[in-house]
């Protein structure tokens, strides 16, 4: 038929430009420039986070009254816990308490990546559960979705700030506080996927083949939701890293002695006019990290979920 005709050619022309026939999804993902760039940078950051103690760092929480407010590249002396004086180059300078910013930035990688990853996992798992229930058990649907609408009506940062303020900030509370406002988005996504897929003729065929509801859910519906969920997961990860740094920056996040990029900036903003690098250096790390995660997410979306790629 005519319309299918032209669309077939249009698809052929699009596909052949970018997608080789019979190439598996995984091969396509690996060939994507965005995935390689984003994934590469993230791999490097993970390596930095793991190897932090061996990258010429000192204890990131150590004060040294003798080396306050140093500009980047300056060499000074630091007193270790044992009381020895060692020569140390402050590559990124030091803050007003004499802590080595380079060490704090390197160790800060750990916090950011951990918070991003765990938040994404937590909100995905909980969101998938609620989404499946809402999409499959009709009488619970209305109730769950109203609550989700309510949570979504409160701006995410406000929920996070309020929860952290109530609970006293720790790694766990920060992660939970950031995850809660993300859950409704995952729930909505999963629910809409379930509702769309269960209308597909192949699911109806499975019903008439006598397959049970759990079997249909796990062998027909869930596998077809993985791609959009992976994509959503990376975007949650990026936003979690951002929100964590905002919490620290505003002074309501993790305690100030813990080296996080937000905390370094919060400390540095007081002397911003004289020492802007205290804000900019962690800022650059933060931006690069979030950028890498977002680029990875874009690449995954384009290759795993081409339909969604055109939409956003």
């Amino acid at each position: 038929m005519a319309a299918t005709d032209i669309k077939r050619y249009a698809e052929l022309s699009v596909e052949s430009a970018d997608i080789r026939p019979h190439e598996s999804t995984w091969q396509r993902v690996r060939r994507s420039g965005s995935v390689r760039l984003g994934g590469g940078v993230i791999a490097l950051l993970i390596l930095i986070a793991i190897a932090a103690p061996w990258l010429g760092t000192v204890d990131p929480t150590m004060f040294d009254a003798g080396s306050r407010d140093l500009v980047p590249g300056k060499t000074g002396e630091m007193m270790t816990d044992e009381g020895d004086l060692v020569k140390h180059t402050f590559w990124f300078g030091s803050d007003s308490l004499g802590r080595d910013i380079y060490s704090r930035v390197i160790y800060g990688t750990r916090v950011s990546l951990f918070v991003g990853l765990v938040t994404a996992l937590v909100s995905l798992v909980i969101g998938i559960l609620f989404g499946l229930v809402a999409g499959y058990i009709r009488w619970l649907d209305g109730m769950i979705m109203r609550v989700m609408d309510g949570i979504m009506a409160i701006p995410a940062i406000l929920i996070a700030i309020a929860l952290v303020a109530m609970w006293r900030a720790s790694l766990t509370t920060v992660i939970i506080a950031i995850a809660i406002p993300e859950i409704p988005r995952v729930t909505r996504l999963v629910r809409s996927l379930v509702l769309t897929i269960r209308e597909e003729p192949y699911v109806e065929a499975a019903i008439s083949l006598g397959s049970s509801t759990p079997k249909i859910m796990f062998s027909h519906i869930l596998p077809n939701t993985i791609a959009p969920l992976v994509v959503q997961g990376t975007f949650i990860c990026a936003s979690a890293i951002l929100i964590e740094s905002i919490l620290s920056f505003l002074g309501v996040g993790l305690p100030p002695e813990i080296p996080t990029w937000g905390n370094i900036m919060a400390e540095g903003r007081i002397q911003f006019v004289s020492y802007p690098h205290n804000v900019f250096i962690p800022g650059v790390f933060l931006t690069i990290t979030v950028l890498a995660v977002n680029i990875l997410g874009d690449g995954l979306r384009d290759t795993l979920d081409p339909k969604m790629a055109k939409r956003l």
Binding site: E200, P201, Y202, V203, E204, A205, A206, S208, L209, G210, S219, H220, P223, N224
Partner: peptide
């Protein structure tokens, strides 16, 4: 009784799960 009645749908492109 389900197995006694079977159905074939219109759209051959959506009647089979693409992942199986």
């Amino acid at each position: 009784l389900r197995r006694k009645v079977q159905i074939v749908f219109q759209d051959p492109y959506r009647s089979l799960n693409p992942r199986r």
